[in-house]
């Protein structure tokens, strides 16, 4: 008998039909959300983008 392969991030797909038809982030995407170095880079980029949006809006 083949071994059971449980991927924690994928469990929710089975919880209901609506969940099953969307995308759910995998382990890498989740890790990047809390990776301080990557998030610091994103922080700078998001800030620059927000400042541009603010300046275009005034």
């Amino acid at each position: 008998m083949s071994e059971k392969k449980v991927v924690e991030e994928e469990i929710n797909f089975q919880k209901n039909d609506a969940f099953n038809l969307t995308m759910i982030p995998g382990a890498f995407a989740r890790k990047m959300r809390t990776c301080v170095i990557w998030q610091f880079i994103r922080f700078v980029i998001i800030n620059v983008k927000m400042i541009i949006v603010v300046s275009k809006s005034h």
């Binding site: 809390t34 301080v36 922080f43 998001i46 800030n47 983008k49 949006v53 275009k56």
Partner: peptide, 14 residues
């Protein structure tokens, strides 16, 4: 280019 969304710590700091 200016309509975007993402999830993470960065937005939380903002």
């Amino acid at each position: 280019d200016y309509t975007f969304g993402e999830i993470g710590l960065a937005g939380h700091w903002i």
